[in-house]
Design a protein around this nucleic acid. Structure first.
Lengths: 234, 234
DNA sequence: TCGTGCCAACTTCCATGCAAGCTCGCATGG
DNA sequence: CCATGCGAGCTTGCATGGAAGTTGGCACGA
């Protein structure tokens, strides 16, 4: 007989605690800019809104602070972090290094695995091309995100995945803002295809180089946009 | 008149809260293997030992879990994480990528700054050479650590620094264990000097490549040691 | 008008209480 | 002898209260 409230699911995962709920809710709110950067909320207020007491909210705030999304100011509240162009430079430096490494790893996989990975990456890239001809910008963004997430996941390095996840959470708002300003969507598709080709051939250094250069070009397109539009913090 | 218990120091830093104390104490205990990997402690017990209540210990445990040093098992206690050789492979992948990027950045700095950085790096490397001829292994380890920390710090990327700090905390125990097993200390000194030379010349790609290859070689020396000694978890 | 000091309201920090979940050992029945 | 059920004692999850720190506005004096 199935238990009504299993403390663990069958695969060993814990059921979400209130802390997890608060963490997820706050993270989502920050992603969607329901909590705008610079906004200073009190734990009490958030707890009330989420229908729980202050404790789980406080603990979730600690985790979010560790993720770099908020700052907990002692006795003053929770501050939603803003990003300056300088932060985006930092973030891109990390992305450039780690995604290049991930691509190299994927290209170094045994043939069956790396071909499967290449197929998955190609599917995302095809979706990008389709969205581009259809003029569907959100779909393009989603497919692009899928490509990069898949690339990192296929490298099979849990720490690398986790770091990239954190850094992507930080930069999500900036990506959304600049999506409609970018003029070089077709270049991305072409570069993705070069990365995929290198992976298919098992050309690890080539995959590394192409992934790296793809992100470097994206950075060099993005940073001027942010600075010219005077986005001191977003 | 100076206040007895300033809430903030003059440069805007917060005074350590009990949570910070607990975090630092537990982190140190893990570093020193006072808490051995695999050990399962109760928050109550740690709280008692540190002379505080469970709350700050619990919150510190959340931060340590975010750092990957412990796992908080619901209603069962705090488990000190162990590292398998597989984890070290993951960790080295991240180090290889990020330290290469850091070296590139430092080499790309304006001449005065990068020469100052090179001098600092050279000082650490000289200390390594001296410790080596003197047979002082702990001093060698400390100087080596100083070199790599300086290299990353000089790149001036806060996120990169933070990530490397976290990953170094994770691998600290493994480094200590293998320090006395390594046979190639002189190779490290030579490779460091190559990195420094590239930085002095402002040769960013060269600095990147040398830093990368230095860490790749170190990994290829280290991983077999761990596996041959049957260190399933440490 | 402007500067200064003080107080009230609000905030988090931390201790503690209660409830619920997990573990392990013992008793019980096959 | 072995399997099973059950309960005592342990653990943490979460709520809440008191204490202490921070802020902002208002009254007061120059």
């Amino acid at each position: 007989m199935a238990r009504a409230k299993p403390a663990r699911t069958d695969d060993g995962e814990r059921r979400p605690s209130l802390v997890d709920d608060a963490y997820a809710a706050m993270k989502l709110a920050i992603r969607n800019s329901d909590f705008a950067p610079g906004y200073q909320a009190s734990e009490q207020e958030i707890a009330l809104r989420l229908g729980m007491s202050r404790t789980p909210v406080h603990e979730a705030a600690i985790r979010l602070q560790e993720d770099g999304l908020v700052r907990v100011l002692p006795r003053r509240g929770i501050l939603i972090c803003a990003l300056a162009p300088e932060d985006m430079r930092e973030i891109y430096d990390v992305i450039i290094a780690l995604e290049g490494q991930a691509a190299e790893r994927v290209a170094g996989l045994p043939a069956p695995e790396r071909l499967r990975a290449a197929d998955a990456l190609a599917a995302h890239t095809d979706a990008m091309a389709a969205a581009q001809t259809g003029g569907d910008l959100p779909a393009w963004g989603l497919a692009d995100e899928g490509f990069h997430r898949t690339l990192v996941e296929q490298a099979g390095n849990g720490r690398l995945i986790r770091i990239m996840q954190t850094i992507n959470d930080q930069s999500h708002r900036a990506r959304m803002l600049t999506l409609r300003l970018r003029q070089e969507l077709d270049a991305s598709v072409a570069e993705h295809r070069r990365i995929i080709a290198a992976i298919r051939e098992g050309d690890a250094p080539g995959a590394h180089r192409h992934a790296r250069e793809h992100r470097i070009r994206a950075r060099d397109n993005l940073l001027p946009l942010l600075e010219n539009f005077g986005l001191r913090h977003l």
